[in-house]
């Protein structure tokens, strides 16, 4: 009698994808994991509440034009909306990003990943994609939807004719709130084997830089020192993008340099920390 099913090892004769696409596997799996968590879904839903509030505001102004005096629709509203989404981006960054590499380091998964046909940059790209797409869902996506909603409710693109820079400003300011925190968090996550420690470290760095800004502002009596605060740099750049009166005296070029510097340092840390073997000299 022959067995119903041969359970011994069999060679594989099927197809294989060419190398270079493993980052998509990491991204798909990571997103599926987070979307299965109720806390994450709750956070996503909560992040869309400001969109609903602003949509109601736009509807009210379109229906009752005199309401525009109290609730004006213009670059300022969109800037405030992008700023508001930054708060949700912080929580998503901590919740999603803290364990992305730290958990792999704790479970020695890096040597498993990197023994497969994928480059280190693919691994980082996959992990970055998980956090970046999660952040996009609470920053860029609602902001772009709000732009569309404004056009649909107003029934015209007059606002964009008057302020042609709104759409690019919304997109660039939102992308900055995705890319820079995502890179910074990934770099921190690669430094530890504890996701909790990484979460505390990220929050601590933001709060410390904010506290430092407060102290220096008190001492100097000027907001030129806003560049020491991570989130204020984003605000400075956002004001410049929306061509609105700046809230801080820090030149936008300095804020850009700080943000680029954070990104460069993060990439450098990732380059050193994401390896199949840790060499102790």
């Amino acid at each position: 009698m022959s067995p119903v099913h041969d359970q011994s090892y069999r060679r594989y004769a099927g197809t294989r994808r060419p190398p270079g696409q493993a980052w998509m596997v990491i991204l798909r799996h990571g997103l599926r994991t987070f979307l299965a968590r109720k806390v994450f879904l709750g956070l996503l839903l909560l992040a869309w509440v400001p969109f609903i509030v602003r949509s109601v505001q736009i509807y009210a102004v379109v229906t009752y034009p005199q309401a525009a005096q109290v609730l004006p629709i213009g670059p300022g509203m969109f800037r405030d909306f992008v700023d508001m989404q930054g708060t949700f981006a912080f929580f998503v960054t901590v919740f999603v990003g803290a364990g992305l590499i730290a958990n792999d380091r704790r479970a020695n998964a890096l040597q498993v990943y990197l023994s497969k046909p994928l480059r280190r940059v693919e691994y980082v790209a996959g992990k970055f994609g998980i956090l970046a797409l999660s952040l996009t869902a609470v920053t860029l996506l609602p902001a772009v939807m709000l732009l569309i909603m404004q056009i649909l409710l107003a029934g015209s693109i007059d606002l964009h004719r008057t302020y042609p820079g709104i759409a690019p400003a919304v997109i660039i300011a939102s992308l900055l709130r995705v890319a820079v925190p995502a890179l910074a968090m990934l770099a921190l996550s690669s430094l530890s084997t504890s996701s909790r420690y990484v979460a505390v470290l990220y929050a601590g760095l933001l709060f410390v830089s904010e506290a430092l800004y407060g102290i220096l502002t008190l001492v100097t009596g000027s907001t030129r020192v806003a560049w020491v605060s991570f989130s204020r740099n984003l605000d400075v750049v956002t004001d410049a993008l929306f061509r609105l009166p700046p809230r801080y005296e820090t030149p936008p070029m300095v804020a850009w340099l700080v943000l680029v510097g954070v990104a460069v340092v993060a990439v450098s840390v990732l380059e050193r920390r994401v390896r199949g073997v840790e060499v102790v000299s």
């Binding site: 594989y12 294989r16 493993a22 596997v25 704790r106 479970a107 998964a109 498993v112 990943y113 046909p117």
Partner: peptide
Amino acid sequence: PENDGHVPGMSAVSFVAYCGELCGLP
């Protein structure tokens, strides 16, 4: 590898299938 190594938070079958996908299997 000599040391323990796995992707955390997965069942064995998910982990092994995930490794297969990383190697290019559909």
